[in-house]
Amino acid sequence: MGARFSESRLSMQFESFSDFLAMGGYGFYVWLSFGSCAFVLLSVLLSSLHDGKTLKQQVKLQIEREARIKKAQQEQAV
């Protein structure tokens, strides 16, 4: 497959960075697409990670709470 690429077709398509940003006049639409895509991907990823953290934290608090209750009951019994 690789042989089918000619040198020019696999090289940088833009002369300068501002050229790259301009996207031949379509910069707004291209960057709007890639920007919103990155935003949605990051949001769903980070919120999923955050959910897991919150969940573990809840379980931890519950364990600590139960330990406290148990301790209090033991002290009362003495």
């Binding site: 077709r9 398509q13 996207m23 031949g24 006049g25 379509y26 639409y29 890639f34």
Partner: peptide
Amino acid sequence: LAYAPADYQQKDSYRI
């Protein structure tokens, strides 16, 4: 975004 050639019809907008 940077290395694929531009489309002959839609130019750089096709990168979407």
